[in-house]
């Protein structure tokens, strides 16, 4: 349920940005979530909708587009690239859950499939961010 905490941060950020830009109505918001975060999309959207209702923000839930960004990892030792979805098959439930909460702990539980190094880069697909907010003044 820490999806709720992230949803709360999204609505607060939209609200603060709308205020800063003097937006009376928000027409479109795009939220991108890294695959590494392993968010339960149903819970996240449910949380967004609930928090939105009590926020006083002039924004329809249907105008929030949430997308998942595929996670790509790149080894700093041998430059091999691989996807999180491949790596996920080798993780236990507990390891996967730890990465869900703090994605950086992927470095503890995952290794480069080519050379075995823990020194890899999360090229993309990490975190939660707002790609854009559109509205009318």
């Amino acid at each position: 349920m820490h999806e709720w905490a992230l949803a709360e941060s999204v609505i607060l950020a939209v609200s603060e940005e709308a205020k800063r830009e003097n937006l009376k109505v928000i027409t479109r918001v795009k939220v991108v979530i890294g695959e590494l975060q392993q968010i339960d999309m149903d819970i996240f959207k449910f949380a967004l909708e609930n928090i939105l209702q009590s926020s006083g923000l002039s924004l329809d839930m249907k105008k929030i587009n949430v997308e998942i960004d595929k996670c790509i990892l790149k080894c700093k030792a041998c430059a091999n690239e691989w996807s999180f979805s491949e790596a996920l098959k080798n993780l236990t439930k507990d390891e996967s859950e730890s990465i869900h909460f703090i994605p950086e702990v992927a470095h503890i539980y995952m290794r480069c499939p080519e050379c075995g190094s823990p020194d890899f880069e999360i090229v993309k697909g990490r975190g939660v961010w707002i790609d854009y907010i559109e509205g009318e003044r």
Partner: peptide
């Protein structure tokens, strides 16, 4: 387990 984290990752984990 050891956490072999580079700077940017430490920062991201703190923010999270």
């Amino acid at each position: 387990s050891p956490a072999p984290l580079r700077g940017g990752e430490v920062s991201n984990a703190i923010v999270e």
